[in-house]
Simulated scan of single mutants.
Amino acid sequence: MHRSGATMAWNVFKFCTALRGLGSIMILLVLGVVGVTYYAVVLTNFGPALSAGGLDSLVAVLVLILFHSLLVMLLWSYFSVVFTDPGSVPPNWRPTIDEERGEADPLVGTEFSNVQADPNQRIRYCRKCNQLKPPRCHHCSVCGRCVLKMDHHCVWVVNCVGALNYKYFLLFLFYTFLETTLVTASLLPHFIAFFSDGEIPGTPGSLATTFLAFVLNLAFALSVLGFLIMHISLVAANTTTIEAYEKKTTPKWRYDLGRRKNFEQVFGMDKKYWFIPSYSDEDIRKMPALQGLDYPSKPDFDSQ
């Protein structure tokens, strides 16, 4: 990952390298949590309730429809993050004239102030990859390469989160929060029943699975909510986790175009595609930022 001398003496992302050996085990863990949850919600509780009749059946139908719909979107978004390359620097990439004037190394000059950049500032260069670095590109020590608009390396998806899969990662967080919240709410009466004096129907195995599914989904709902709020604030400011850490409290940021345009930089302009892990062909053609190499900036920065 990108380092800037003494300011990066303690890198909050360094812990990722210690988890390099986990690999696809994390994918199996995610699928394991999904499997336990599916067994508890569909096979143990609300599937059998379909034949109960009355209000119980209606509630079961609604829960199962919502559960499966959110599960499809969750898994679609998750595997889109896993299997989508976050963005690599093209071979023999060279910056344009505008980028040479506007990009300094590291995250200083015209990116954070109204002072004219020093003409002697060099183009950003990665000594590990021995190549020039496009704007907002950072080196990932886990992947061992430069990643376009790198946000962070996520062990849960066994991949970097960058320009080409950041939207998919956000949708994964969004649908995970909705799904885990739904499961927590739907299993809450069953969880409370564990602490009542009455007899609880079901086998010991099904009861244990229900209990475990409730605890896991409650924990994930609370933790994912924190990450979701953090990334919403990052999208609103058109910055990444790494950039927010490196620029610290400096108020000036050349890529902050306003909340609407900042949102479109990640999700595209076609509203039909906002909530699915994909982009329209028109957005890909008309929005260079989605390719991770060229980003529009504030006019007052470009004029400097």
Rank of each mutant, 00 (worst) to 15 (best):
M150Y: 06
N217A: 10
G162H: 01
N238H: 10
V224M: 08
G162Q: 01
F169G: 00
G205I: 11
D151A: 06
E199Q: 12
L182P: 03
F195Y: 13
L216Y: 07
A237Q: 12
A208E: 11
F194S: 11
E179R: 00
S196R: 14
L188A: 15
S223A: 15
C143V: 08
H152D: 07
L222G: 10
F177M: 09
N217V: 07
C154S: 07
E179Y: 01
D151W: 00
V224E: 00
C140R: 03
L178K: 06
L187G: 02
F214V: 05
E199K: 10
D197G: 12
F227I: 08
A237K: 12
E199Y: 09
K149W: 01
P189F: 13
L171A: 02
H153K: 03
L216A: 14
V183E: 04
T181E: 06
W156C: 04
L171D: 01
F194P: 04
V158Q: 02
T180W: 03
C154G: 06
C143P: 03
L188T: 12
G226F: 12
S141H: 15
C137R: 00
F174H: 10
P204Y: 10
H153F: 09
Y168L: 07
V183G: 02
T240H: 03
S233Y: 14
Y175Q: 07
F169M: 07
A163M: 04
S186V: 13
D197L: 12
T180F: 03
H138V: 09
A219Y: 12
E199F: 11
F227A: 12
L164M: 13
M230Y: 14
M230K: 12
G226P: 06
A221S: 15
F191Q: 09
P201V: 15
T181S: 15
A236M: 14
C160G: 11
C154V: 07
P189Y: 13
C137G: 08
L182N: 04
D197M: 09
G202F: 06
L148S: 06
L222E: 09
T241N: 10
D151M: 04
S206Y: 03
K167I: 04
F211R: 10
C143L: 13
A219H: 08
F220W: 11
V215T: 13
F227H: 10
L225W: 07
V215W: 13
T239I: 11
T203C: 07
F195N: 09
I192Y: 14
F220S: 04
L170K: 02
V158T: 09
L225P: 00
I200F: 13
D197I: 10
G226Q: 14
W156E: 02
A213M: 03
G198N: 11
A193K: 08
L187W: 02
Y166K: 04
Y168N: 06
G202R: 03
I232S: 11
F220R: 00
T203I: 10
